[in-house]
């Protein structure tokens, strides 16, 4: 068996197209997931019991589902609800946002809770309002505490986007799969995909480690 590197180079433009879809899904998933997750975290920390219970239920429910099953759920349910087909890309994106929000919620919540309670009292005692205390004292520290975990979870999402394979979206893995199947070159294609994911994720987690060392409180 021979591994043909020139073959991979020939197919790079198509693979890059797939990688763009992967990166776009990751980026939009992070933005949507963090936004929804932060809202859920605020709800979970709320003094209003029904709100915090509902947010807790959301987190528990979405964390017990396999992501693939959630993708199937959305792929089927969303068109039924909207009354028109929406395609694999948007189904997958909605699934990632809903799913990751549950994880981001817990990260944001523990980030906020990691700041000692005394600091709220101290802020209020110096005459700041609750909002000012949150904005100027609690949130900046919370953000520094949660940033490494947020980034690690984002790397996880980057890897998880490969699951769009099950709804036929042409991400990096699926593009490689299509090309490799057509030319009977699955070894080169899957091997290349693994190497690229490995290099990118390694580089990303190394930078997260470095960041963590520099910004830890």
């Amino acid at each position: 068996m021979q591994i043909d590197l020139a073959y991979i180079v020939d197919e790079l433009p198509l693979l890059w197209k797939g990688m763009q879809v992967t990166l776009l899904l990751t980026l939009l998933g992070i933005v949507g997931g963090v936004a929804l997750g932060a809202a859920l975290a605020v709800a979970r920390l709320s003094r209003f019991r029904p709100l915090s219970l509902a947010a807790g239920l959301y987190v528990d429910l979405f964390r017990l589902l396999p992501l693939i099953l959630l993708i199937f759920w959305i792929y089927f349910l969303l068109p039924l609800w909207l009354g028109r087909p929406i395609g694999g890309f948007y189904s997958a994106l909605v699934s990632f946002i809903l799913y990751e929000a549950a994880y981001f919620c817990e990260i944001v919540r523990s980030g906020i809770q990691s700041v000692r309670r005394g600091q709220v009292h101290a802020g209020l005692a110096t005459g700041l309002s609750y909002g000012q205390t949150m904005r100027a004292i609690i949130l900046p520290q919370a953000l520094r505490n949660m940033l490494p975990v947020l980034l690690t979870q984002s790397i996880n999402l980057f890897k998880s986007t490969s699951l769009v394979y099950v709804v036929g979206v042409r991400d990096f893995l699926t593009a490689a799969d299509v090309i490799g199947t057509k030319d009977n070159r699955l070894i080169e294609m899957y091997g290349f995909v693994a190497v690229v994911y490995f290099a990118l994720c390694c580089a990303a987690s190394l930078s997260v480690n470095r960041l963590q060392r520099r910004y830890a409180i």
Binding site: S162, L163, L173, Y190, A194
Partner: peptide, 13 residues
Amino acid sequence: NVPLLVQIFLWYF
């Protein structure tokens, strides 16, 4: 650092 799905394909194919 390699997605589980890619690992499954490597083992299988």
